[in-house]
């Protein structure tokens, strides 16, 4: 997993609520057995028409917005547990998703892949959308060690929450499997003391 510390970049706004993982990556593109290449089909049916032509009114096809932050409406990543959704977003070059609410499984999947789900309040989210709308060049500085979203233009600093363990994993580029494997002894000890086993 790639390490994550401080990123300064622009944002791509998608002010739609309840974006589900079927939109992020439709099921018919889940046939690959590796983790690579899903970015090509990110938001496939919003991005291309049935003839495979890019839809000019979709934000990912517009040259107006660029950056490694995806700014999305409330309840992002609901629906299917497919981790391919996090892979696709990452593969397309994003490192952060900002929303006012993330579906649980998506949040976990993102964190396990070095993609930061950054949660802000509804009010802040609406303000960020307005800023980017007014000036597509708006810069965002995401500072993970400080748990801070900094807006250089206005000097505003917005703090965000993240589980301390997950934060350390992101900064160091570790994932849970490394930690769990180190717990082998505790796991076998637990198994031998269980009152009821299946």
């Amino acid at each position: 997993m790639e390490k994550f510390e401080i990123i300064r970049t622009g944002a791509v706004p998608m002010p739609i609520e309840n974006i589900d993982t079927d939109q992020i990556i439709p099921a018919r593109f889940l046939k690959a057995t590796s983790r690579e290449g899903f970015g090509e089909n990110l938001f496939r049916d919003w991005r291309y028409d049935s003839d495979g032509e890019p839809k000019t009114d979709f934000v990912l096809n517009s040259s107006r917005y660029k950056g490694q932050v995806l700014l999305a409406g409330k309840n992002f990543g609901c629906g299917s547990s497919r981790e391919h959704a996090a892979w696709a977003i990452y593969d397309a070059g994003f490192r952060v998703v900002i929303s006012s609410y993330f579906a649980d499984i998506f949040r976990g999947n993102a964190l396990n892949n070095g993609l930061l789900p950054l949660q802000v309040t509804d009010e802040v989210l609406q303000r960020l959308f307005a800023l980017v709308e007014a000036d597509p060049q708006t810069e965002f500085e995401v500072n993970l060690p400080e748990q801070e979203l900094y807006l250089p233009a206005s000097g505003e600093r917005i703090s965000f929450e993240i589980d301390p363990y997950k934060k350390e994993c992101l900064i160091k580029g570790y994932d849970d499997i490394d930690f769990l494997v180190s717990q082998k002894e505790a796991i076998t000890a637990y198994e031998s003391t269980r009152a009821w086993t299946y």
Binding site: S81, E83, H84, I105, G108, N112, D163, Y165, L180
Partner: peptide, 20 residues
């Protein structure tokens, strides 16, 4: 409950997950 593929690998390797 449902899990992502990284967690599928974790359970395969350790029979455990790290959860809150």
């Amino acid at each position: 409950f449902g899990i992502g593929t990284s967690q599928v690998a974790q359970v395969m390797a350790t029979q455990c997950l790290l959860l809150s």
